[in-house]
Computed example of a mutant assay.
Amino acid sequence: MIPADLLERARTLAATGQRRILGIAGAPGAGKSTLAAGLVDALGELAVLVPMDGFHLAQAELERLGRAGRKGAPDTFDAGGYAALLARLRTAGDLVYAPAFDRRLEEPVAGSIAVPAGVPLVITEGNYLLHWERARSLLDEVWFLEIGSAERVRRLVARHVRYGKEPAEAERWVRTSDEANARLVEAGRARADLVVPGQ
């Protein structure tokens, strides 16, 4: 259930008469994708979801660069490509296709999300919307989703197990990789337009 004040704020953005982009940032496991998907469901034809995760580098490239063990860190994404897509989405007068991230494959998949020209609101969510200056400058608003660390870590471990990691490996990954990324993400909290308590 999306809080009424958040839904109204998003609806107001969609009603400005020109394409707007709303970002939802937060640490890994904060619930960004759940909130973003809920907003899009509630707004119907007024909004499309374009997650930042579609700009993960492919696993083969991460291995070539020696970064596979840090997947999810800022330098394991195509930050420039993400910003370029945001810029295109702001001004495009035609259909734009965006990539998605398939968690079962653990790979980005190009051309997965159609963004019709007439959709007034694009909602994007991801860890680094407040970290990458070029991306931040292209967003009309950014909301920072905040949740207690214990619940966030519990969700992350469960997610990694659900997608194939053994419990001990999932806990190790969260403790080392995800939590290092979380500290970096949380440093950008003050740059958000709105801080939203997570559920």
Rank of each mutant, 00 (worst) to 15 (best):
N181A: 04
G198A: 05
E151M: 07
A190G: 10
R191H: 12
L62N: 08
R90W: 00
E186Q: 08
I21G: 06
V161D: 11
V119W: 01
R159V: 12
A98C: 10
L138A: 13
R9D: 11
V122F: 01
R90Y: 00
V142K: 13
E179Q: 14
T12P: 05
F144K: 05
G198C: 00
G164W: 09
E151W: 06
V50Q: 08
A36V: 10
E8I: 01
V122L: 04
F101L: 06
G23P: 05
A10C: 04
G54Q: 02
G69K: 11
A4R: 11
Q59N: 15
E171N: 13
R67C: 11
A110G: 08
I2Y: 00
P74D: 08
P99R: 07
S33D: 01
Y163C: 12
K32L: 03
V109T: 11
W132N: 10
V109D: 08
G26S: 05
V196G: 03
G17I: 00
N127Y: 05
V153Y: 11
G54R: 02
P3F: 03
R191F: 12
G17H: 04
G66R: 03
A158W: 02
F77W: 10
L184E: 14
L105A: 07
G111N: 14
L130I: 11
D53Q: 07
V195T: 09
L43S: 02
A36T: 01
V109Q: 10
F55Q: 02
G118I: 08
A37Y: 03
Y163D: 14
A27C: 07
L121F: 09
I2K: 04
D5F: 12
V161R: 12
A170P: 12
D78I: 07
F144Q: 11
F144T: 12
R9L: 03
